[in-house]
Design a protein around this nucleic acid. Sequence first.
DNA 1: AACTATCGCAACCGCGCGGAT
DNA 2: GATCCGCGCGGTTGCGATAGT
Length: 240
Amino acid sequence: MGGRKPCCDEVGLRKGPWTADEDGKLVDFLRTRGASGGWCWRDVPKLAGLKRCGKSCRLRWTNYLRPDLKRGLFSEEEIQLVIDLHAQLGNRWSKIAAELPGRTDNDIKNYWNTHIKRKLIRMGIDPNTHSPFDQQKVNHEKEETTLVNGQDPLHQAEAPVGSQNDPSAGNLTHLADADGDNIQPWSFLMENNGGGCSSVGELTMLLSGDITSSCSSSSSLWLKYGELGYEDLELGCFDD
DNA sequence: AACTATCGCAACCGCGCGGAT
DNA sequence: GATCCGCGCGGTTGCGATAGT
């Protein structure tokens, strides 16, 4: 693809946060001209009297000003759908957004990165593959990065407060079985024997707090989790 | 009360796709 | 077929709000 001009190279175009006045102009324009048809986004700033590039106008409209947008917290059903769809589609945020009326790809992407992803990592689940981290790989990478940086970036970036130094903290990464080996929480939740969780849907119920209905407590390993309790597992994270 | 760290969201950037010429 | 052009997507950054010290 050759010769495309940068979108925002015109001198004098505004950047950064939109003002109420700019929002009003854009909304007025789209109300009078219709949200589609008879114009292209590149023309919108001129037609609406805005000192913005067309791309910025489109983004503002689709992510913030659209009347059908749903604001506020994600519901349990929405979280489940996001995790489910992400397992199928990966980072195709627009595709995922298409299945969640009123949510934008940006919304979902932000929510994933700031809430869901971190929690999955804390639980020992790779958010990219939706599978347990390969413990050997983790250990290997840990060795490498420790050699390079003298610190463990995974724990530095993603570990819950107190997980490394506070022995009193509920800490999944320190769970050990009878042999002293570390147990990845997801590994037994995914086990089919003994009533562990076996689907993304069940994971969602776990994440949103509905543990008892999603997983049988008959598993001995599950009992280990049961002893930790809701707070220890940091499952309240999706309540906020 | 002041300072620092962390979080969460809005917005920007660069690239690829696909239709038009 | 080559090029142009607009749009949409995914990744990243900036910054205000809030929490912690």
